[in-house]
Simulated scan of single mutants.
Amino acid sequence: MSHGFSPTLRRGLTTAAAAGLVLAGAGPAAAHVSVSAPNATPGRSTVATFSVPTESDTAATTALRVTVPEIATARTEPVPGWTAKIERDDEDRVVAVTWTANPSSPGIRPGEFQRFVVSLGPLPETDSIDFPVEQTYSDGSVVRWNETGDHDSAQYPAPVLTLGADAGDQSGHEHGDQAAAEPGEGTDTTARWLGGLGLAFAALALGAGVGAVVRGRR
Rank of each mutant, 00 (worst) to 15 (best):
L206F: 05
D92N: 15
T126M: 10
P124Y: 02
D130V: 01
G107E: 03
D169R: 15
A165Y: 13
A181N: 11
L204P: 11
R88F: 06
G184H: 03
P103F: 06
D139A: 07
D92M: 14
T187Y: 02
L206M: 12
G81D: 08
I86P: 03
P78W: 08
V117F: 09
S128L: 08
W145A: 06
A74H: 04
A200L: 15
I71M: 14
P106T: 07
R75C: 02
A205Q: 03
W193T: 11
L120I: 12
W99D: 04
D150S: 14
A96F: 05
P159E: 01
A200Q: 00
P106S: 05
P106G: 02
E174M: 08
N102T: 15
I86N: 02
G168L: 14
A203F: 11
V143M: 12
T162Q: 09
P124Q: 01
A96D: 09
V142R: 04
D90F: 15
Y156L: 14
W193V: 15
V97N: 07
G140N: 05
P157L: 01
V94M: 04
S119P: 06
D127I: 00
G172V: 03
D92C: 00
S128G: 05
I129C: 12
A202K: 10
P132Y: 03
F201Q: 08
T162F: 07
W82M: 08
Y137I: 04
G111L: 04
T100N: 00
G81E: 13
D169M: 11
L120C: 09
T73K: 01
G172N: 02
L206V: 15
L120K: 00
L199F: 12
V94Y: 00
P106A: 01
V160L: 10
E112F: 11
G195M: 01
P183W: 05
A180R: 11
G107P: 07
S141C: 03
V94K: 01
W82G: 07
A200N: 06
E91M: 14
P159Y: 01
A203G: 14
S128I: 02
S104D: 14
H173A: 11
S105Y: 04
E147H: 07
G111D: 07
D169E: 13
F201G: 11
I108Y: 00
G207H: 06
A180H: 12
V97K: 05
F116S: 03
G184P: 06
P106H: 07
G209T: 11
D127C: 02
G81M: 10
R109S: 10
K85E: 13
L120D: 00
A72I: 10
I86R: 08
R93T: 14
S153F: 11
G198L: 08
A179Y: 06
A101H: 00
A191F: 13
P106L: 01
A203M: 11
Q135F: 01
V118E: 04
W193G: 11
G149M: 10
G196D: 12
L123N: 08
E174D: 10
L197I: 15
A101S: 00
G81N: 07
I108C: 06
P110F: 03
G111N: 09
R88L: 07
S153C: 08
T98W: 07
G209D: 09
E70D: 13
P103D: 11
A72M: 06
P103R: 02
P106W: 07
T136C: 08
A154V: 04
